[in-house]
């Protein structure tokens, strides 16, 4: 069926995508809540900075990350000294690259659903004795579940397709950072690699279809729970 290299790339892509969603989920909810519900100094700036990955070339993001988070970069050196963590040229770095690229998508969809929440329901919950944390957990969070799901799907998809920031930040190392798109790129650059490249395209299509179908099922289930 699949060759060892293909399995490796597929497994790595999935692992990076799952971790990308896991890493962006809670911060995404937090930042979306800040942007939707709070007014503070520098809000426009935060919002702008957040959307940079959507408009900048991914290679530019990857390069900035390399400068900042590389082993000699200011944050990279600190991470290494303090936690012994190194992002440059590791699969964790690939997660970081796709997380940065996916974060604006995650925040956007959660923020939109937060802004659509009927605040009057939250007021009703307060008159029924719930303080802000319980109101958020029992009313707000269930009502924005579709937005969170959409954000997670977008982040997952963005991670599967991420190429530019990843190859610039963590390079193209087989078994460590060579996800499906990078493997495909490698094959396309290799003489007589057309057949192997085609197989990777087929794997990518199958993976994308499976992910889309799965998200459709999940979305339907969430909607049914919400609307009864």
């Amino acid at each position: 069926m699949l060759t060892a290299a293909e399995t490796e790339a597929l497994a790595l892509s999935l692992r990076v995508a799952v971790w990308c969603v896991a890493a962006t989920l809670l911060p995404g909810i937090g930042v979306a809540w800040l942007l939707a519900r709070r007014d503070f100094y520098g809000k426009a700036l935060l919002n702008g900075a957040l959307h940079l990955p959507l408009v900048l070339p991914p290679v530019a993001i990857g390069y900035l990350m390399l400068v900042a988070l590389g082993r000699n970069g200011p944050f990279g050196a600190w991470l290494n000294d303090a936690f012994g963590v190194s992002l440059a040229f590791t699969w964790q770095g690939a997660v970081a690259a796709s997380a940065v690229m996916a974060f604006p998508l995650m925040v956007r969809s959660i923020r939109l659903s937060l802004e659509a929440v009927d605040r009057r329901l939250e007021a009703a919950a307060a008159t029924l004795g719930s303080g802000p944390p319980r109101v958020f957990l029992t009313v707000t969070l269930p009502l924005i579940a579709p937005g969170i799901l959409t954000g997670a799907i977008l982040a997952f998809a963005r991670s599967l397709g991420e190429f530019g920031a990843t190859i610039t930040f963590v390079s193209n190392i087989a078994g460590e950072t060579r996800t499906l798109p990078l493997a495909l790129y490698t094959m396309a650059q290799t003489p007589d690699g057309e057949a192997a490249a085609m197989r990777l395209v087929a794997i990518s299509v199958a993976l994308a279809m499976a992910a889309l179908l799965g998200s459709e099922v999940a979305a339907r289930r969430v909607r049914r729970r919400l609307e009864g």
Partner: peptide, 30 residues
Amino acid sequence: PQARGIGYVFQDCRLFPHMSVASNLRYGRH
């Protein structure tokens, strides 16, 4: 508001759409 012990019946009801009627009724029991 959550500490006032005041029950409020709103003009637009404001039932929680993601809960059954029974869960709505029990929401303030805590």
